[in-house]
Nucleic acid binder design. Sequence first.
DNA 1: CGCGAGCTTGACGTTGTTCAACTAGAGTGG
DNA 2: CCACTCTAGTTGAACAACGTCAAGCTCGCG
Lengths: 232, 232
Amino acid sequence: MLSRTEHKFGCEDCEFKKMSCLYVEPDSFEEFRQQSIKLSFSKGETIFKQGGKSGGLLFLHEGIVKFCYQYDSGSNYIMTIVRGPKLLGGANLFFKSVNIFSITAMEDSRVCMLDSAAFMKLAIGNPAYLLALVENTMDMFQDAIFNFISLAHNHVNGRIATILLYLHKNVYNGQGYSFTVSRKEIAEFAACSHENVINTLSRFRKEGIIEFHGKEIEIINIELLEEISRKG
Amino acid sequence: MLSRTEHKFGCEDCEFKKMSCLYVEPDSFEEFRQQSIKLSFSKGETIFKQGGKSGGLLFLHEGIVKFCYQYDSGSNYIMTIVRGPKLLGGANLFFKSVNIFSITAMEDSRVCMLDSAAFMKLAIGNPAYLLALVENTMDMFQDAIFNFISLAHNHVNGRIATILLYLHKNVYNGQGYSFTVSRKEIAEFAACSHENVINTLSRFRKEGIIEFHGKEIEIINIELLEEISRKG
DNA sequence: CGCGAGCTTGACGTTGTTCAACTAGAGTGG
DNA sequence: CCACTCTAGTTGAACAACGTCAAGCTCGCG
């Protein structure tokens, strides 16, 4: 029997198992699962380090993580932010032997590190499963690309509006219209200075689009925010 | 027997067939190939239109194409430029029923439009083949992402340097240090105004980094260009 | 010959970065 | 418990980067 602690990690009802068992036999999945390692990360801890040896596939059971690119100069760029449950695969993990970016926990997170070789074995035997996982990964890429496009075309107003909407809809969903992010992280996501973020957020507050107390930001007028996101 | 015209399309020695037959039986591939359509596109012609129904997978035998995102305002953003032979798959084509960006020929190009259903059948039967194709696609995404990162972090100097290096190394390789691109396209790639491109290129010329006559650009000092690309 | 698209240049205003000074809160060690 | 330090946040001023506008240019094409 599972102990209470192990049960907290949800091996019996985990989302990854549920999704996998749509395609593969529970026994095959169980064999694969035996090769994986359960880990907890606290807010701020680095899960994968840019430039480090790739740790294979990662399943984020619960929590919120950011994909960061770190420059030699020391500054960071956040490529995307995702919440669990989600498979974190793709260019960083599927095929490369070295991580091309870092993955850092933004909230306390629980993950499973999956064994690449065991995964490949499972995938080769179940192409429909592989296809479903690739599709899942592509969705994450697509979200990231739309953020890049907003970044390429819009001024800081529009970029920050896009980011606030993204965080509301895709990350902090299911908790009303408010969430907690630092100005520094918004700056790293929007690729601008933190001073500019502060000024922009203050302007949004003056105009009644958002409200904030400390790090907690609340969206008041989402229609207007969407218009700013579109028009730049 | 193949006619001379058909032979020009290279069905016997095409790169896609060569690559595919590392994984699948020639007979299976031939069956798949029967479902595909050979087409030629002239410089400037649109191959896939953003918002249009997805045309499935595309193999670019020869030529150069750009992936464009078009804004309501009418302005364009070039996400990436690739040369054949290359499989153009990924988020745009693998799974979505609607194209999320346009693909346009920058030089005269020859392509095969592949049938999605026939491809899926082939891939499901040959997981190693699917894996190889996904890896190929991910590489293209990775290149695009590095361009995005340069765009997010660098000033126009660095962005244009990055783009010139990308074009030299990945697109117009095998033709020395010179190539032909319009200022407008560089501007759409670097996400800045065409005036800014002109000023930057002139500055690069004054500093002896590049030389140009009309649309033909030649890289003179590649080390310096790489330094600008890195440092912004 | 005239037209339009792309290219070029300079002036000007806006946007955004950098810098400096200050405040507030969270750890840390005596 | 209190200083000390470190990080994040805030504000304003000075400066650089960039886009926009206007004008004139060249080239290819009908």
